[in-house]
Structure formats: C-alpha cells, structure tokens
Design a protein around this nucleic acid. Structure first.
Length: 748
DNA sequence: GTCATAGTAATTTTT
DNA sequence: TTACTATGAC
C-alpha cells in the first residue's frame, strides 16, 4: 500500500487510476465507487508528482455543480487556489474560448448566449417569416432538429435531404435561423460547442497553442458526451496530450439528448494505447441493494461489463408494495417516512423518485396533508423567471441593440400600445431590408410608417433603452440593474399583480441586484487571481504567441449576461430546511440517500410507453432503473399501483418488468395489514436472468413466419401461457404466445 | 390590451 | 386530468 498523502484512503483500483501513466486512460466507475474522488486526486497527483502546472490541465464536466465541486475539492487537496486551471463545463469552456477569440470564431465581441426559451422564440419567428404553417412545422420540433444537428456537428449545408420534404424544410428553417442568430450576434448552447470546435479545427495557430498548453485533459461523465463534444476533446488534446476519461456506460441516461454511449467504445478503439481501469467497489449501498442493481442491469446487452460489490452488510431486504392506486401509493410513502423520522431520523434522508414530473403532484398532496416538509428538484430556476428575463432583456439591449430576441421580449413589456399589428410591421421592415428589429424600429419611426400611438410607443421604447445606457454609463453593474428595474417600469408592472405573486417577483428582482453586486466582486477576485497565476508561470506561451489570455477585456455587463445564461441558478431555495426530497430519476443521478422510494414501477410508466418499442429505448430505461436503485444507501422501497389515473383515464397497469428482474430472494412484499411475506406474484414470472423460456434472450433478433424479423423486448409468464413481446421491423411491437409463435433465431 | 373560452397534447433536462 | 396555446369578444 502506497502511503503517499494523495493516495491515502484510496483502494487499490483507485490508486491505480490516480497514478496511471498511460497516455490515455479510461476509468469505468460504477455507481458510488468514488469517481469524483479519483478524478480530483489524479489531478492533484499530476500536479504534485508529475510536475504538471495547473495551467496545463483541462478538466471538463457537464454541470456547473460538478465543476464547482471539482474545483473546490482540488483546491482543498492542494491547499492553494488553482485559478489558472481550466475546470468547467463543456459549454462554459467553449464560451471562454469563443470570448477570447471571438474574431477568429467569426463572432461579434459582444455576442450573447440564447437559452432554449429564447431559441424557441427565434425559431418561431423564423418559421412564421418563412410563411410555413406552425401546426405542420412545429417550432418545438424545428428547435429539436437544429440542436440535434448541431450536436452532431452538422451545418445546414452538411445535411442531405434527398428530396425528403421534412428534412429539406427543417434544414431550411435551420439555415434561416442561423442567419437570424448571426444578424443579432446570438449564440445558442449547441452553437457554443460547435463553434468552439470549428474554431480549433480551422485555425491551426490556435489549435497548436491549446494543444501545447493542455498537457492533460480529463473528462467526467464521459458516457454523456455527444458527437461534437467528443470531437472537441479529441481536437484539443491532439496527439501529444494525455487524456483521462471517467464514466459508466450503465449510467448513460441521456441518449435522447444526443449523448453517445458509443463514445466510450470509440475511445478504446481510437486510442489504441489506452488503459482501462474498473472501479467496482461500492461505498454507498448495502449488498442487497447492489445485487438488485446488478441483476437488473445484467439484462442489457453490449455492456462494457462491471460488477459492483461491497464489503458492507447485507442490510435490509428491499420492500415491494402494491398500492391500490397512486393516492394510496403516496400515502404509504408518507407514512413510512413519518415512521422513519419518528425513529429519530431526518426528512432529508428520504428521497422519492419518479419517472415523470406528472407523478409529483399526488405525492406532494400526501406530504402536504400530513404537514411534512418537502422539496422538489427541477422546475423554474432563478435566471429563468419571467421578471428576471425581462430585466435582463433590457440589459441585453443596452449591450447590443441588435439582439432581436431581447427586443421581441420587452418591446411591449410593460405594455406601451404596441400590439401584434405594430410589431408585425416592424418585423416586415426588418425582413425586407435584412436589418435587425431595432434598426427596423428606427426606420418605422423616421418614415412614419405606423399610426401615432404605436409610433410613440416605439419611440418611447427606444429612448428608454438609450436613456438607460447614458444614465448608467459609469455605474457599477448592480447599480445599472437597479436602475433598469425601476426605469423600465417592470417593477411597477409586477407589483400590480394580485396576491403574493407581485411581492415574490419584487424580491426576486432585488435578489438579481444582489447577484450582480456579488458578481462584481467575484469577477474582480477571479481576475486578480488569474493574473497572479499567469504572471508566475514563465513557461506560459500566452505572452510570446500574442494570444490573449482570458476574459481580458470583457465588460462586466456582457460577462454577467453570459453568466446568467450559462448558470441558470438553483431551482429552489430553502435548501437548508430539513425536508423530503422529490425528484425525477434523471435528476437523481449523482446523488445518494439513506432511504429511497422508487415509485410507479409499472409497464408503460417505467419503462415509459414512449421508450418501450425499441431495444435501445428499453435499455436506457433499464439504465435509469439501475441509477434509481443505486441511489439508495440503506433501504430501498419499490412501489407500483394496481390502478392509476393517467390523463383522466383509469388504467390497470401491470408491474414493471424491472421488478421481475430483481431476484425474489432480495425482496419482501409488504401486505396491507403491515405483515411481511415472500413475494407472491407468479413463481415463474420472477426470473432471475434474462433467459427466456426457450433460450431466447432479450434484444435477440428472431424471425416469425408472418411478421418477419424483429427484436425481443420482453417475456411474460411461463409454461403454455408464456408470451413474448417482439418489435417487428414490418409491423412494430407485438405480443405473441410463445408456444404458437414459431420463432427462429436470426444470426447477426 | 385583457379576459374568457376552446382546443390540444401529454417523458426524461443541462447548458 | 391538467396545463398551455390560440383565438375571439369586449
């Protein structure tokens, strides 16, 4: 056992991962195996033992939370600030690159970032301006199309539609949308990544610079990377930098968002000198819980393979409860939590997880009824609130009059007599002259193209924005925002809202001012830190190559606006109160709780209807289930309802296949009168493997005499009753009685 | 410009 | 069922 301080308290696999000197390292880290710890310790190791400067490290994560945590922990470990180290999210780092080299990236210095809300507005406008029917060509769908293509690295000209009307139209919308963004100097989230990639790809000078600078690139949650992120990582690390990726193929749950689980396989192929280290010892859960998780995930194909184990106790059995309906499910949970808390524990140790947000209401009601405190994750975040976005829209116009998204948002907020008609006139002018809305508005005013009232409204608006700028020329950021809130009339408008709402909005606006004040200070501290670090590093290539360092001259307002888009803030406050935690399975990833309730374990709900028809969707649902199970430390409850109201209709769902994939020996069924017994559901349906009755396997390709080829999705029952669900290429999913189905396996 | 009503669609979410 | 959008009446 190595006793180096950095390696203390790490197990052997963790130590190997920290000290590995292969040029490319893949760490397959199971749930609860100390993934972040390894990453942080490896960075500390590289700095203190391998002599790398913090300047030469690049660490990438997906969420701001993870990035902050990583930076904090590495600074703790090193005992000093690591300002010069690039630690951030893909989007944050891409943004940083684009700010530093805006010109080379073909962007305006003052470009701003669109969040998905703003993006949708622009897409909507584009669709309308193209004269397309919004019902036939839904903006939401177009937005999705554009993002998906960008995530895949495709520009409109790269897309081949082969006469396909859908693709052709969508591509055309994409193209028009791009133009609109360019005109307004706006960049959406996917664009940040794509643009940053293209910047390095097309600019050899910059590429070489960054490849030389970053001697070691580390990526967290690698299973969540999309195509363009992978390519960006490859490009920036070049052929000479070392690379460490950490991930877990079994926890890939964002395939629907463009994440490519195959990137892990690709990495192994493309870096043929790579080494793979598995972290399989789990420090979180009881062995019962781990066995259940392992059994479920074993039903997936194409895994890299990994078996979690623990040296800990077997712990309590998993409780399975069949509720009458969703209300009863909720009441049961509430009463169990009550019992748990009465034994001297805290609410915050309990988490209720569900597949879709719609399920949360009934759960909330049950908790409310008992007066139990709870907190829901997800929902509107601070910078997404209407009042905040309105205020920031004014700020964006101060920084850049050509920001059409901001213009549209507040040109008539608060109302100043500009209805749809008037705005339509402005839009027309803008489109016909290929100018921005602000420029078009000026033209409308000058040439008197609108009735007096509307014309006055436009003039007032333009003067208002101009005044805001001149009045606050020398002011600090928070003073500017304070001024905008007042002068725009937004405060007055919101205070008129009835009930508590107006007051809450006012508080949020005040909160925005304090956020701006803190941002001023942070920004100042960060800059000085950075300079100090850079100055102390003579080997830095920045000076001699004439490349700008970072954030050299970003105006505070532009910096703050970017910050607001990139870090939407916490979803809900009051996080210090002891409360039950409610969230979707997706948002539970990365968290852990002593007691976990997995709700709605029913076919069509979990696995969800929309993911049931193909084997990939099903595999992702199963991974989601794996994530859910592995959140639990001590006690896991599985719940399903026999009757559930779904969209106003009563349904009688059957128990989720995932429950049946857990060995029955790990489960005890909770009966209504609180007695406990062994599981009762059909002895044979509780199968401990993915083996079908006749040796067929889930995901296997089979041939049916009538329906042709299809993939096996599920088995139900056994004996003469046994049925099998297959997704046929010709007719889609079908459930057949196995005994009559005359299936033949098909060799791949 | 605001309010009421009808119609529609309905995972998962971060940046 | 609900929640959101679009439309039409005042």
């Amino acid at each position: 056992m190595n006793t180096h301080p950095i390696l203390q308290f790490l197990n052997e696999a963790q130590q190997n991962a920290v000290t590995c000197d292969a040029p490319a390292l893949l760490v397959l880290a199971g749930a609860g195996s100390g993934k972040t710890r390894v990453l942080v310790h490896r960075m500390a190791w590289l700095i203190s033992e391998c002599g790398l400067s913090p300047h030469a490290l690049l660490a990438v994560t997906f969420t701001n939370k993870a990035a902050h945590e990583m930076r904090g922990r590495i600074e703790d470990l090193l005992g000093r600030p690591a300002g010069a180290m690039w630690v951030g999210t893909f989007h944050g780092l891409a943004h940083r690159l684009l700010r530093a080299h805006a010109r080379d990236a073909g962007l305006d210095e003052n470009f701003q970032i669109l969040d998905s809300d703003d993006q949708l507005r622009i897409v909507k406008r584009v669709v309308r301006e193209m004269g397309l029917d919004e019902n036939e060509w839904q903006p939401k769908q177009a937005q999705w199309f554009i993002s998906a293509r960008k995530d895949d690295g495709q520009r409109p000209q790269d897309i081949k539609h082969n006469g396909d009307l859908f693709t052709a139209t969508m591509t055309s919308i994409y193209s028009h949308y791009e133009q609109a963004c360019r005109q307004s100097s706006l960049v959406d989230f996917a664009e940040l990544l794509l643009r940053a990639y293209e910047l390095l790809r097309d600019n050899e000078h910059l590429r070489t610079h960054y490849q030389n600078r970053f001697r070691h690139v580390l990526v967290d949650e690698f299973q969540d990377t999309n195509a363009i992120q992978y390519r960006w990582i490859k490009l920036i690390s070049g052929n000479t930098s070392a690379i460490t990726i950490v991930g877990d193929d079994d926890q890939s749950i964002y395939g629907w968002r463009g994440a490519k689980i195959e990137n892990i396989h690709r990495f192994q192929q493309e870096y043929n000198d790579s080494e793979t280290i598995r972290l399989e010892q789990n420090y979180r859960s009881t062995s019962t819980i781990l066995q259940a998780a392992n059994a479920v995930i074993a039903n997936n194909n194409d895994r890299l393979g990994k078996n979690l184990w623990t040296s800990g106790d077997q712990g309590e059995p998993i409780s399975l409860y069949a509720a009458f309906n969703e209300q009863e499910e909720a009441r049961f949970i509430a009463s169990r939590i009550q019992d748990y808390v009465n034994q001297g524990n805290n609410y915050r140790e309990c988490a209720i997880l569900y597949r879709s947000n719609a399920q949360s209401r009934v759960l909330e009601e049950a908790l409310l009824q008992r007066g139990m405190p709870y907190r829901i994750y997800g929902g509107l975040r601070f910078f997404e609130r209407a009042e905040i976005k309105d205020t920031l829209a004014y700020c964006r116009l101060i920084a850049n009059r050509d920001d059409d998204a901001a213009f549209e948002r507040v040109v008539n907020t608060p109302t100043r007599g500009l209805g749809q008609k008037s705005i339509e006139v402005v839009r027309d002018i803008a489109r016909n002259h290929k100018i921005t809305l602000w420029q078009a508005a000026s033209k409308v005013v000058e040439e008197n193209l609108l009735p007096a009232r509307a014309r006055n409204g436009l003039m007032t608006f333009q003067e208002l924005v101009a005044n805001m700028e001149s009045e606050t020329g020398e002011a600090d950021l928070h003073e500017l925002i304070d001024f905008v809130i007042e002068a725009s009339g937004l405060l007055e408008m919101y205070l008129k809202e009835k009930g508590e709402k107006g007051l809450a909005r006012k508080e949020n606006l005040q909160e925005l001012v304090s956020a701006a004040r803190e941002f001023d200070i942070d920004q100042y501290l960060y800059d000085t830190e950075l300079e100090a670090e850079e100055a102390g590093l003579p080997e830095s290539a920045d000076g001699e190559s004439g490349l700008p360092v970072m954030e050299d001259e970003m105006p505070p307002l532009v910096a703050f606006l970017s910050h607001a888009s990139l870090e939407a803030g916490e979803a809900q406050a009051e996080k210090y109160e002891d409360s039950v935690q409610l969230m979707t399975l997706h948002s539970a990833k990365g968290l852990e709780f002593p007691v976990v309730f997995l709700t709605g374990l029913e076919e069509k709900l979990f696995p969800h209807q929309m993911s049931m028809d193909d084997i990939d969707g099903l595999a992702e649902e199963r991974r989601l289930c794996y994530v859910g199970i592995t959140r639990a430390m001590k006690k896991l409850y599985l719940l399903h309802a026999e009757k559930r109201r779904l969209w106003g209709k009563e349904t009688y769902p059957s128990i989720s296949r995932f429950v049946r994939e857990i060995p029955s020996s790990l489960i005890e069924e909770v009966r209504l009168n609180a007695q406990v017994s062994q599981p009762m559901f059909g002895t044979s349906s509780l199968m401990d493997s993915d083996q079908g009755p006749e040796g067929f396997q889930l995901g296997q390709m089979v041939e049916h005499p009538k329906f042709g080829h299809g993939v096996i999705l599920n088995f139900e029952g056994s004996g003469p009753q046994a049925r099998i669900q297959i997704n046929f290429e010709s007719v889609g999913p079908k459930t057949l009685v196995l005994a009559y189905a005359k299936l033949e396996p098909v060799m791949a």
